[in-house]
Amino acid sequence: MSEHVSINLSIDWTKAKTVVAGVDIGAVNSKVIILVDGQPYIYSQVKTRIPEESAIRAINAALDKTDLTLENIQCIVGTGCGKKQVPFAHKTISEIACGAAGAVHIWGPSVRTVLDVGGQSCKVIHVTEKSRVTAFLWNDKCAAGIGRSIETFADLVNKEVTEIGNIALRSDKSAQLSDFCAIYAQSEALDLIRSKEPLEEVIAGYHHAMAKRISTLADRAGVKKDLVIIGGLAKNQGIINSLESILKISRLAPKSEWDPALTVALGAALFADAFLLRNSA
């Protein structure tokens, strides 16, 4: 699941007016989306190691499935924390702007708040119907790495990262853990194992604590309807359920055709498309 490629074979890029790509180098995963005449043609996701190398790996993973070459892509926009390390990008745009653009494209102009919960950072973004960013709040230092921490925690209890969010849902009760810092919570969770708390309760507690940490940030920035959640953790139902209950607001449901982790990459590709159209006009 962590490394994959997906392609829409019904599209023929050779006849297209625009072929563009968005490359999102996140702290944990690197994602590429190629749009053909504004339609999603192919996307790929690989683990981020060294940003530059990961960018190349991600684009190659996508290109390998088609007869496209790098030269055929007319505009490439890099984004994500490693955006400056994408050697083949024509332009870089911040992950905040890309997240907003991607979210409005997927969920429509009613989106006002985009909560981007990634591997390393967590952002609350306010947008207009035209996907213009009006305000944002970046996590404070103590709230860094929530996405990665959940991955690490999954590792420690020998579970898959996709599995762990669902385990959290299985428990009605959740252990009370520090929602101040992911490492404190991790230490406390590990210690609960010693007192033989049920696995589900500890995992649920960990998810709840992390959701609480994110929600304090969201509350501080203010959450306006409609809310969407993007980034790697958007697929962790344990986090999402806790977040929705703490924030007392439901997010717009994910669209079946779009992986919310790809929203930022999509936004970058949309910028590339717009850029191309503007320049050719």
């Binding site: 520090s178 929602d179 101040f180 404190y184 230490s187 406390e188 590990l190 210690d191």
Partner: peptide, 12 residues
């Protein structure tokens, strides 16, 4: 006052 900051396992 704030249990979230208390190092409970370490303290024990």
């Amino acid at each position: 006052v704030d249990v979230r900051k208390m190092d409970l396992p370490g303290a024990k």
